[in-house]
Computed example of a mutant assay.
Amino acid sequence: MRKRRPIPLGMRRGITLRQVAPNAITAMALCFGLTGIRYGIAGDWERAVAAIIFAGVLDGIDGRVARMLSGESRFGAELDSLSDVIAFGVSPAIILYLWSLQEMPRFGWIVVLAHALACALRLARYNANIDVLDQPKKAAGFLTGVPAPAGAGLAFLPLYAWFVSGMDIFKDWKLVAPWLIVTSFLMVSNVPTLGWKRLRLPPEWRLFAIGAAGLFAAMLMVAPWISLLSLTLVYATLIPFGVMSYARVTRRISATSAQEASERIN
């Protein structure tokens, strides 16, 4: 019978906390997303949306914490995708249905299902392409389509406008349904959107950007819905710029490739 090797003194079986911490943050994001549904059922719309926003903040830091602690794992990647589907696909869909689209005759539920399904398909495509080396958009610093957290934020744009103005026109399903269809399409589309690596500032703008970030954080405390409405509008405005920027990059790459081919021939 083969004997087990003795465990060195001072060493314990198990996994380190650095491997648990990123997954714990992801689980918190999932729970915040589900809590948003709870507040939506109660008709507490501000807390419902705030829960999804907190889930988005946690989703933004879990991957960075994993890389910082060297705690990346396949399990964490799968958990992150499942959390994103619930927090940014299912939960916003149910909240928007309870808030507005249940008044839409016959097709209100189909519209919110489109959002949840688009989020799931986007994440499935992302997971399928994790090990693919040939990804021109990613190599150039662009994303393919709108990320799931940003898609949830865009879907909530009518809610932000309703919070700020109090006007029932923003709650009308005739406005909410087409907007949700557009945001669902953007998540599963091949539209190139600007990634963090692509966003660059001139060195002389650094202090201005830091100051603007600080003021925006203060605005979130004083006037959260105006701040989120403004941020969402800015992001929506950047989508066409992302498309044009990627078109310039592809033209530049094509021109460089053609020039190199011409030089080889000559």
Rank of each mutant, 00 (worst) to 15 (best):
G153P: 05
P92G: 00
V164G: 00
L199G: 00
V49L: 08
G108I: 08
V176W: 02
L58H: 07
S230K: 05
D134R: 06
V164A: 01
T144K: 09
S262Q: 07
D44S: 04
P202C: 02
L154C: 07
G71L: 08
A120S: 09
G60F: 10
E204R: 14
F75W: 13
G40I: 15
I52R: 07
K137T: 02
Y235N: 09
T16E: 11
P149Q: 14
I15H: 03
S70Q: 15
A139V: 14
V112Q: 05
V57H: 07
P147Y: 03
G195T: 04
I94N: 03
I95G: 01
W109F: 08
L194T: 13
L96H: 00
A77W: 12
P192L: 04
V85I: 12
S91K: 08
L96S: 00
R64N: 08
L228P: 10
S245C: 01
V249I: 04
A139H: 11
E46R: 15
G166E: 02
L207M: 11
F54V: 15
Y97C: 03
D44T: 11
D168G: 01
Y126H: 08
A42M: 12
T237I: 14
R2S: 11
P192S: 02
W205Y: 10
I130R: 12
M221D: 05
I210P: 00
V20T: 13
M244T: 02
D59L: 09
L186D: 13
V182F: 09
L98A: 01
A21V: 15
A50D: 11
P149L: 13
R74L: 05
L113P: 01
S70W: 09
R252N: 13
Y235H: 06
W196E: 08
W99Y: 07
M28W: 09
L175T: 07
L69V: 11
G76F: 11
L238M: 10
T35D: 02
S262K: 03
Q19I: 06
R125Y: 05
L121H: 01
A212V: 12
L30M: 10
R248I: 05
W196L: 15
I94S: 04
P22M: 01
